[in-house]
Computed example of a mutant assay.
Amino acid sequence: MLRYLLPLLVLAAPLSAAGAAFIDPRISVAHGAFCAVETFGESPAPETAAGKIDLYDDVPRIRWHGQIVPAHGVMTFGIVSKSPDGAVYNDVEIILRHPPFRESGVTEQRYLTVLGGAGNSINAYSFDFPEEMVPGTWEFEAIWQGETLYKIPFEVVPASMMPDMISACLDRTLTS
């Protein structure tokens, strides 16, 4: 029996490498992945690899909850947050740490945003270019006035490890 269980444990080890999330009680979150969606605009963000962040018309729904994401251009992953008491947190610094991009060597990206208020907020990442699709631990951290509101690691894995997610997004893309 152990010889059958051992391969499963070895396979599961890289999938749990992302680690535990920290979430301040002032913020409630859902984290995971969803199929990439159209954005309606952008905002300058000079400390990001692209120099901008994309803006969503509506906050996308997390389709796959958890911390494991396949590296593929049809995937987006991140955190949907809400302030249960409606408090607004201005000038929240979002820091995304990740393995070095293949060409540029970028390992960290930063931008300012607002969290809380009456609705949901989203901070997410889409794989727009092949150099960004690097496996390893990616971590979002939201810092407000020197305090961490959330710190959530994700494990980005090769797309071949999660073909069902990729297929679901490709099928949706082909029909929309």
Rank of each mutant, 00 (worst) to 15 (best):
G41R: 10
G51C: 07
Q67D: 14
E131T: 01
Y150E: 04
G66T: 07
A18N: 02
S43W: 09
L115M: 13
V37Y: 06
A118W: 00
P44I: 01
C169D: 03
P100E: 04
G73D: 10
P70V: 02
Y125V: 11
Q109P: 03
P130H: 15
G116I: 01
M162Y: 03
P158C: 06
V37C: 09
G32K: 07
S81H: 06
E155R: 14
Y4I: 15
A13D: 11
I23E: 05
I62W: 01
T113F: 03
H31M: 11
A17Q: 09
L15T: 05
T76L: 01
P46M: 04
A118E: 07
V59P: 03
F127S: 05
F77R: 02
L5T: 10
L15V: 07
F101V: 04
D85G: 11
I62H: 07
M165L: 13
I94S: 02
E103P: 13
F101Y: 12
W138E: 01
L6Q: 10
G136W: 00
Y4G: 14
A71L: 06
F140D: 03
H31C: 12
T137A: 10
D164C: 05
C169T: 09
W64H: 12
R63T: 10
T76F: 00
R172L: 15
T173G: 11
F129N: 15
T39W: 07
A33P: 04
L115D: 01
P14M: 00
K52C: 04
V156E: 02
E42D: 14
A20F: 11
F40L: 09
F22W: 08
L174F: 10
I62K: 04
C35S: 08
P100S: 11
A159E: 05
V74F: 08
D58Y: 11
S126A: 13
K151T: 15
T173H: 14
S121T: 15
T76V: 00
E139G: 08
I166A: 05
M165H: 09
A45S: 03
T175V: 07
Y150T: 12
S126K: 06
P25I: 08
